[in-house]
Design a protein around this nucleic acid. Structure first.
Length: 184
DNA sequence: TAGGCCATCTGGTCCT
DNA sequence: AGGACCAGATGGCCTA
């Protein structure tokens, strides 16, 4: 997989300043043969596709691009779209298993990740509390879980006092839910 | 109208 | 070599 210690990458400046990136639609590369599926879509995707179908925001394609290179780019764009769709599906699946107060309001991605992290922490803390209480001194899951938990805490760096206790996680999760509710 | 959020395009980098 | 991953750039939509 990916190397974690990869140096930060610098983006090269656009080759053609006349054609901004957001305007490099498939149509600008290859007019009239966009890769969009012919199924009905809703939301932004549908709006974008409708705009494309109607020819909005088009500019002449970049000069000097070879047809094979254009084709590779289109295929690459399509793969990237599919990848992002899969990522968004995963976000949606995650949203559906995180209990939060405002079910009518869709959690943003950053909210989803943050809530999920603290939800997991609070669940872990709850399990630890219950298991260690029921199985004192035995070889059950309690002590092992607790050891693992402590190792994770150490590996994850120094934590505040509130995070060192189960109640801290629950409190943090609860506070976060309410801050999302009030802030939105 | 400004700011937040998002989808998409794009080119660089890494992995298989 | 080709695909996956990543992050910057851009523009559209929505809400306060």
């Amino acid at each position: 997989m990916k190397t974690k210690n990869r140096p930060p990458r610098r983006r090269a400046p656009p080759q053609d300043p006349e054609v901004t990136q957001g305007e490099r639609t498939p149509e600008t590369l290859q007019p009239g043969s966009g890769p969009e599926p012919a199924k009905a879509l809703r939301g932004r995707t549908a709006r974008v596709q409708t705009a494309r179908a109607e020819g909005g925001r088009r500019r002449p394609g970049p000069v000097g691009r070879r047809e094979s290179s254009v084709q590779r780019r289109l295929e690459s764009n399509e793969r990237e779209r599919q990848r992002m769709h899969k990522l968004n599906n995963a976000f949606q699946a995650l949203r559906e298993v995180i209990p939060h107060v405002r079910a009518d309001k869709k959690l943003s991605k950053i909210e989803t990740l943050t809530l999920a992290k603290n939800y997991i922490k609070s669940l872990t803390a709850t399990i630890l509390t219950m298991s260690s209480g029921r199985l004192p001194g035995l070889d059950g899951p309690g002590p092992k879980l607790y050891q693992h938990y402590q190792q994770q805490q150490v590996a994850g760096g120094a934590l505040g006092a509130s995070e060192a206790e189960p109640e801290g996680h629950l409190q943090k999760y609860s506070t976060q839910i309410h801050s999302f509710r009030e802030g939105s």
